[in-house]
Design a protein around this nucleic acid. Sequence first.
DNA 1: TATTGTTATACTCTATAACTATA
DNA 2: TATAGTTATAGAGTATAACAATA
Lengths: 161, 161
Amino acid sequence: MPGETAKRELVDSVIQLSFLVQAVLARAAAAHELTVAQVRLLGILRDREPSMMQLAQHLGLDKSSVTGLIDRAERRGLVQRTASAQDGRAITVSVTPLGRQLIERAGDEIDAQVTAIAGPLSTADRDVLSRLAARIVQATDIGALPGQATGVASAERPGPR
Amino acid sequence: MPGETAKRELVDSVIQLSFLVQAVLARAAAAHELTVAQVRLLGILRDREPSMMQLAQHLGLDKSSVTGLIDRAERRGLVQRTASAQDGRAITVSVTPLGRQLIERAGDEIDAQVTAIAGPLSTADRDVLSRLAARIVQATDIGALPGQATGVASAERPGPR
DNA sequence: TATTGTTATACTCTATAACTATA
DNA sequence: TATAGTTATAGAGTATAACAATA
């Protein structure tokens, strides 16, 4: 069947690229004493103050996983829990100045490093890659993935700005 | 500065795509009772019988991490340890029939699902994406990444065939 | 002495199930 | 009853440091 080889090559290259990007992400995060999960968390908290449940949905994680994530981040002074005024059961999570500072810096580094691995491509090619990737991401509703672990949520990425 | 926006878009889309691919990978692996780490491991063992050290290099992990990975996989009957004939200190790791069966099946599913998310692209566009991704991957020597966690190693991907 | 692998230990991240408090 | 969040528990995955056995 024609196209089989091309298909395999696509799968191969895309998977390898994903591992590469994740590795770069992990390294950049680690350079700022952060984990990938924390970068994702802080990225969301940059422009939001969600409840634990909303956070769980954004991250695609179970609420108990979020409790742990927030516990560790709070212990490190990166985020803060405050009681919700509306709902007595809920709490609101927000980023602290320290957390904001860290995510700003880590974001810059992530930007730089991800841009760096795209180095071998011409400006035009990067643009093409960017658009193709964006089309796939937009067309795929991760929410449709009942998956758990690697929870992604079409949510915002942790990056800069 | 011109190009700043394009740069950010590139970083954004590439990172989001990597999360998407990892999520798909995790889901496909889970469907066969495997983790992403195990899929990577079995993918390597498909056509090799490396020592623990070689495995650690391929995976970009510390040797103690590999010990744990192999412990769990061996306990599940997916891989096997055998003493090396040449070097009395070394051991050789190989995949068992069960492990091979699982990685074959999981590989097929991964192929199908990754191909599926590329659905919104035309055949020509997929080809372009494939080549651009491949160029980045080939040009970037992950070995250069002293990183630990997400270890990638320019090694072979876990995929099919 | 250097290398290979394991063990001990410690974290992060994630999930399921059970429980508390509020709606 | 239903929902928000926590706790208890378990297991995968990783790392560092120390150690045993072999080169």
